[in-house]
């Protein structure tokens, strides 16, 4: 039982990795690994059939995608024949799209009836592939509700920028120019995020020991309010580089976003222990300490901050205001008044 669980975990990790490699354009690497683990020729396939249950549908589907990208359509089809389920069906649809067989692709990906609804709504490509077939067939308007659902459910998917662009196009066709502009702005912003995301992942693959790419990756996740993913990346980063101060600081931000205030205090404190010059971490910690009425500690942090030249302007300017609150909490009315006056004066500047 334990062995099976280990195998299942390994498979899940491998599928995730293959998906990432494919998204980063490294199909050949996936294909080479797939040849080893899945077998390409019939004899090997027969041998592997005994352990077929190990070759999950997800692997076969990803391997087929890699094969198709290498122009090996027959091999892709052979692999798909060995599996079943949503991943396999959707990969078949992708192959059909390669061959301009739009109607067959739609039959595989849509439930019967109107309005069009995907057979596999739990997967991003379950929405995107039928939308793509409809768009190519000149029926973008029919795809519109599904595209909207896709960008709502999977806003960070690698297909999201394209889906947003298609929505802009659908709005133009419908004469909604304002709507088109808004969709396009979202598409461009999504594409920028995605390009950076892919660049960071590539950098992380290239320099697995270096913390910077992962730090960038975590920041990107936080930018789109995906603190859990950010935390995952940061934990991985800090395992590799436990003394990387900016990692601890960003971890504090991620934990705060997740509501784990104790955790974030602890991460910021760790960061400040390693590098007392991390002003943003100190500021964040102070604000949190005020919320917890830990006035003395907050005062200590804020007193350090207001002495800085950077505290004369945003974003550290509010350190004066918070210092006033901390001093008030400690009963130092005069000190609080003075800090508040300084804040107001600097604000006017």
């Amino acid at each position: 039982m334990k062995a099976l669980l280990i195998i299942a975990l390994f498979q899940a990790q491998q599928a995730e990795r293959w998906e990432e490699l494919i998204e980063l354009g490294l199909h050949r690497q996936v294909l080479k690994e797939a040849h080893t683990s899945l077998g390409a020729d019939d004899a090997k396939a027969e041998h592997l059939a005994k352990t077929e249950h190990l070759a999950k549908a997800e692997h076969l589907a990803l391997a087929a995608r890699a094969a198709a990208s290498a122009g090996q359509l027959e091999l892709a089809e052979r692999w798909l024949e060995r599996g079943e389920g949503p991943a396999i069906e959707l990969e078949r649809a992708r192959l059909l799209l390669h061959q301009d067989k739009l109607e067959q692709a739609l039959a595989l990906t849509l439930k019967p009836g109107e309005p069009p609804h995907p057979k596999y709504p739990e997967r991003a490509d379950g929405w995107m592939l039928p939308c793509r077939a409809l768009s190519r067939a000149g029926e973008l308007e029919r795809a519109r509700p599904m595209l909207e659902a896709l960008v709502t459910r999977f806003p960070q998917d690698d297909e999201a920028p394209a889906a947003l662009h298609l929505l802009a196009q659908a709005a133009i066709t419908g004469g909604d120019l304002e709507g088109a502009r808004s969709w396009r702005e979202r598409a461009l912003s999504s594409a920028r995020w995605r390009a950076l995301f892919d660049a960071r992942r590539t950098q992380a693959l290239e320099n697995p020991q270096d913390p910077l790419p992962r730090l960038g990756l975590a920041a990107l996740w936080l930018e789109v309010d995906r603190a859990e993913e950010a935390l995952g990346v940061l934990d991985e980063l800090l395992k590799l580089s436990p003394r990387f101060t900016r990692g601890h600081a960003l971890r504090g931000d991620a934990l705060r976003a997740l509501g784990d205030l104790d955790g974030s205090l602890s991460s910021w404190s760790e960061a400040l222990k390693l590098d007392p010059e991390l002003h943003a971490a100190r500021y964040n910690r102070a604000v949190l300490l005020i919320g917890r009425e830990r006035w003395e500690e907050a005062k200590a942090d804020l007193t350090l901050l207001v002495e800085l030249e950077q505290a004369q302007r945003p974003p550290l300017l509010d350190a004066h205001k918070h210092l006033a609150a901390a001093l008030e909490g400690l009963g130092d009315v005069e000190g609080a008044r003075s800090a508040r006056a300084r804040h107001e004066k600097l604000q006017k500047k």
Binding site: L26, H27, R28, T202, Q203, E206, N207, P213
Partner: peptide
């Protein structure tokens, strides 16, 4: 440059 360099690759080549 450095850890933030992005390799110039196409299909892994």
């Amino acid at each position: 440059e450095g850890a933030l360099a992005v390799p110039c690759r196409w299909k892994g080549l």
